[in-house]
Simulated scan of single mutants.
Amino acid sequence: MSLTNYLGCNFTLPISDEEIEDLIIVGNNFSSKYERENVRKHITTKHIYEVATAERIGLSLYKEDKKNSPHNYQKKQQYLKALLEILDSHLEQGDYCELYTCWVGEESEERNKELDQTIQISMFDMDDIEVAEKTLLTIKK
């Protein structure tokens, strides 16, 4: 099983070229069409993409990693920042995206709603964001 991130958008995102080494890869990395359909229970937007890091792994970010593994925490923050920059360039004022994180195969399971977060893309503290499994991060512009 792989940890994956599903990105819901109301606009079309370009699929990443596998030959180019971007920090964030947009495409169907681990999931099947069936799993992407199941994640609809958590995502309200028109389009759903799967995103992964340049290392071809799902993105997770936990506050305790800042102390336990500072190097990896900073690297994961760089990945999240790269994703947010992509979204900022596509989002219209007043629009939003949703990032749902789970293990492939667990898309239809209940999420940890108490851990869901909403951020404004132009104004947030990176240290306050967690990208945990079975949570939804809503990104607004």
Rank of each mutant, 00 (worst) to 15 (best):
S31N: 02
S31Q: 00
S32D: 14
S32Q: 08
S32P: 02
K33L: 11
K33M: 09
Y34Q: 07
E35W: 12
N38I: 00
R40E: 02
R40Q: 05
R40N: 05
K41F: 02
K41E: 03
H42T: 03
H42L: 09
H42R: 10
I43R: 09
T45E: 04
K46S: 14
K46D: 14
H47V: 05
H47W: 08
H47E: 15
H47S: 09
I48L: 06
Y49C: 09
A52S: 15
A52L: 04
T53M: 08
T53H: 02
T53E: 03
A54R: 07
A54S: 13
E55F: 04
I57R: 12
I57Y: 05
I57T: 11
G58S: 02
L59M: 12
L59Q: 04
S60H: 07
S60W: 13
L61D: 04
L61T: 03
L61S: 05
K63Y: 06
K63L: 08
K63Q: 12
E64Q: 14
E64K: 14
E64Y: 15
D65R: 14
K66S: 03
N68W: 04
P70Y: 10
P70C: 01
H71G: 01
N72F: 11
N72M: 14
N72Y: 11
Y73E: 03
Q74W: 06
Q74A: 06
Q74P: 00
Q74E: 13
K75M: 11
K75V: 11
Q78V: 01
Q78T: 07
L80W: 09
K81N: 14
K81P: 00
A82Q: 04
L83W: 04
L84W: 04
E85V: 11
I86T: 01
I86M: 13
I86Q: 02
L87I: 05
S89E: 13
H90R: 08
H90Y: 15
H90N: 13
E92G: 01
E92V: 04
Y96I: 01
Y96C: 02
Y96N: 03
C97E: 10
C97V: 10
C97S: 15
E98N: 09
E98F: 04
E98M: 09
L99V: 10
Y100G: 10
T101L: 07
C102Q: 10
W103G: 15
W103H: 14
V104G: 03
G105M: 08
E106I: 00
S108K: 10
E109K: 10
R111N: 11
N112C: 07
N112S: 09
E114D: 13
L115E: 14
L115N: 14
Q117A: 11
Q117H: 07
Q117M: 15
Q117K: 11
T118G: 06
T118D: 10
I119M: 05
I119N: 01
Q120V: 06
I121C: 10
S122K: 15
S122T: 13
M123V: 07
M123T: 13
M123D: 15
F124N: 00
D125W: 03
D125A: 05
